[in-house]
């Protein structure tokens, strides 16, 4: 199994920590002039998204994680798994479970491309694009002509997700651009 020494650590490198694959975010060299050298490393646990900070003695090695990130097209869900297909014309598919899809479930739209993180060929995370366009399936009736007033309301989207901060003039059937990082309304999509 490949290992990385602290002096090879770079942001974006995938390593194993406590049995979970992690993505290195930051690597800081810490050393008192007359003391031991350390690397203080921030990494994101790729399974649960949590950020961990660990300090290693410089020169220590940790195991590399076999992690790749692929752009894949979302196909459908069978209720238990969410199926994605490679975009390289191989038609190869993977099935992601609930823990991999997690909150991204709110933004899954068929034929849209998502980033799927594979660890030892198993999907462990699904990242949506920063913006998706989704149709409104339910919201209070729109107020005609009210485009300037600052009032907002919630709206339910085709994925089942409910977003807040939607302007009052939005109607059922409108397509909205949503920021998936914040879960907030951005604009009405041009149709």
């Amino acid at each position: 199994m490949a290992t990385y020494s602290t002096n090879e650590f770079r942001s974006g490198m995938k390593v194993m920590l406590d049995g979970d694959p992690c993505n290195i975010l930051e690597n800081e060299f810490v050393k008192p002039g007359k003391g031991q050298a350390f690397n203080r490393v921030k990494m994101r646990n790729l399974k649960n998204g949590r950020v961990w900070e660990r300090t290693f003695k410089s020169g220590e090695s940790i195991e590399a994680a076999d992690v790749i990130e692929l752009d894949m097209e979302y196909l459908y869900t069978d209720g238990e798994f969410w199926h994605f297909m490679k975009t390289d014309d191989s038609y190869e598919q993977v099935a992601a479970d609930q823990s991999a899809v997690a909150d991204s479930e709110n933004w899954l739209k068929e034929q849209e491309v998502y980033q799927v993180t594979l660890w030892n060929d198993d999907p462990i995370a699904v990242t949506p694009p920063n913006f998706v366009e989704l149709e409104v399936t339910d919201t209070d009736p729109g107020l005609k002509g009210d485009t300037a007033n600052g009032g907002t309301k919630p709206a339910t989207l085709s994925t089942g997700a409910t977003i807040k901060g939607v302007p009052l003039f939005i109607n059922i059937g409108d397509v909205l651009k949503v920021d998936t990082r914040t879960g907030e309304y951005v604009s009405r999509a041009k149709t």
């Binding site: 810490v30 008192p32 003391g35 031991q36 003695k57």
Partner: peptide, 13 residues
């Protein structure tokens, strides 16, 4: 241990 002290010292500084 010296390791623990060096790290504690660096972080305290």
């Amino acid at each position: 241990g010296r390791d623990a002290l060096d790290l504690a010292f660096a972080e305290a500084c």
